[in-house]
Every structure is written in structure tokens, then in C-alpha cells.
Design a protein around this nucleic acid. Structure first.
Length: 267
DNA sequence: CGCTAGTCCTGTCTGC
DNA sequence: TGCAGACAGGACTAGC
């Protein structure tokens, strides 16, 4: 659920926890711990040296040897709160900090998870480049699309191609670049790929500026909603007039995911 | 290789 | 008002 802009917003709002030490980690739902390369007790006393993002993963570095990697799945939340607060329903993990309150991990659908690993790379697998980083160039995108027979929307959702794009932003990016989600990836010409490349960066940056999109569950690191839902141009707007041409936005299923686009503006 | 459908879960909304 | 079914922002797997 939370995509790159939402995860980035969470990471930024959690930055005030950096520098504080772990008092203890309490796991209420062991099944959400996906990998446990060291004991939970060994975290006690370690400092949070940094909190960063990689794709849709949140990476906490606790001294270079111990990492906490969080994924929000569809319904996950990770937020700071004062000590001793009542736990909300579906709070699976609480990270108690010394003199800095508690970090609550809440995830009703449990599609997310927590990894306790020595090296973050072990969790990321074949994750593609960061869309807002230098490595993600138009040339790289062109190479990634070449000869691909899958629809462009499916390719944008593939985390191995580029990390962090999910269903909402994929639809918004394709509207911005005036490309139909059903277009075969390999059929895009250089000009279209350049436009798509610009739209990816533009839309994700706008999402971050607005502190993410709250469609249902998403909240930032202080449990506050985002604002990008005010600027969505196709997602969730089935039947409503296209903001460019006035024709109704249509919704179809692609790979089991709902897909919103304007048949008149996107080709 | 690539596509589809199924799977993991709970909460919320829609239609009867 | 109640209930069944659809659907939800992710990602992996099996099977064709």
C-alpha cells in the first residue's frame, strides 16, 4: 500500500528517533518477523544510527551489524508515540527507545513484515534502482523496456525494474506521460520513454512534497494522513471527467490490479 | 520468459 | 438492519 512517497514521508518523520538507543524490542505477533538473523535481545542498548529508505523498505541501521528492515505491505503503519500509550488494534511490534518514546508497527492485513538481519542487501533481492537516483536514467529505462512484451503498467510495478512504484503512482505516472497502461513496453519509442522517465520523477516528487497519498490506511511517522489524494488525476476517479479532456476516466483490471486511465488522452 | 490466478490477511463498502 | 461478496495502495508462487 504505501508506495515510495509514503515510505519516504514515514522515514522523514521518523528522523527524530535517530541517535537514540534501543531499550527493547517487543514482538506481539511473531509471524510478522520474516527473518531473524540475531536475537531480539541483542538489540538492547544499540543506537539508531540512521533511518533510510530503499524502494518501499524502511532501513534502520543499529550500528552497522544489526539492521531492522520494515515493509508496510498494504496496510502497515510505523509511527512514533509517547511511552505507555495504549496499543492500537493489530499492533504487532513496539520498539521502545531510551528517552524517545516508542515506535509502533501496526498492520491489520499482515502483508508487511520485519527483518532482523546483519546486511540489508539480503532482504532486497533483485530490487531495481531508485527512481529518484542518478542510476535511473532515460537510457536505463529504455534498455529495461527493450523487447519487453508485457504491458507498460505491469513493468512499472515490477520492483526489479525500478524500486518503489505501486498501483496508485503507476496510474498517475502513465496519465502524466499520456501513455496507455496497456501499451506493450517494448513498443514505446525514445520520445515516449523520455517523457515516461520525466513523469516518473515528477509524479513521485510531487507525492513526496504532499507527504504521500492517504486513500485508506496510510499514515506518516506521526500517524498523520498525507495530502496527495487531492491531486490524483486518475486513480479512484472512475467515471469522473478527465481533467484534461472531460471524457470519463475508465477503470479496467490488469494483472488483478485496478487500473485507471483516460482512453482519449493516453495512447 | 511472461502471463494469470491463487495465496497470504482484515476491514470496509456495496448491493440485495 | 443483516448478510454475502467484492475489493483494497504488495509481493510471492505455481502452473500453463
Amino acid at each position: 500500500m504505501p508506495e515510495l512517497p509514503e515510505v519516504e514521508t514515514i522515514v522523514r518523520s521518523l528522523s527524530k528517533a535517530v541517535g537514540y538507543r534501543v531499550e527493547k524490542l517487543v514482538v506481539y505477533k511473531p509471524v510478522v518477523v520474516r527473518q531473524e538473523c540475531y536475537s531480539i535481545d541483542s538489540l538492547t542498548g544499540l543506537p539508531i544510527e540512521s533511518i533510510t529508505r530503499r524502494g518501499k523498505f524502511i532501513v534502520m541501521d543499529l550500528g552497522g551489524q544489526h539492521y531492522l528492515i520494515w515493509h508496510m505491505g498494504m496496510s502497515g503503519r510505523l509511527f512514533l508515540t509517547e511511552s505507555g500509550q495504549t496499543r492500537a488494534n493489530h499492533t504487532h511490534v513496539v520498539l521502545h527507545l531510551v528517552d524517545a518514546g516508542e515506535l509502533h508497527y501496526v498492520d491489520p492485513r499482515r502483508f508487511g513484515g520485519l527483518w532482523l538481519v546483519h546486511r540489508p542487501e539480503d532482504v532486497f533481492g533483485q530490487l531495481g534502482p531508485e527512481p529518484l537516483g542518478k542510476e535511473f536514467s532515460a537510457a536505463y529505462l529504455e534498455k529495461s523496456l527493450r523487447n519487453k512484451k508485457t504491458p507498460i503498467k505491469n513493468l512499472l510495478l515490477n520492483q526489479c525494474v525500478v524500486a518503489g512504484i505501486g498501483n496508485i503512482y503507476a496510474d498517475e505516472i502513465l496519465f502524466d506521460s499520456a501513455i496507455s497502461p496497456e501499451r506493450i513496453a517494448g513498443s514505446l519509442d525514445s520520445k515516449e520513454i523520455a517523457k515516461l522517465h520525466r513523469s516518473i520523477k515528477k509524479v513521485l516528487r510531487q507525492g513526496i512534497e504532499c507527504r504521500g497519498t492517504t486513500f485508506r490506511d496510510y499514515r506518516d511517522g506521526f500517524n498523520r494522513p498525507g495530502g496527495f489524494q487531492e491531486y490524483l488525476r486518475v486513480y479512484g476517479r472512475e467515471g469522473k471527467p478527465c481533467l484534461k479532456c472531460g471524457n470519463p476516466i475508465c477503470r479496467i483490471k490488469m494483472g488483478g490490479r485496478s487500473t485507471h486511465f483516460c482512453q482519449h488522452c493516453q495512447h
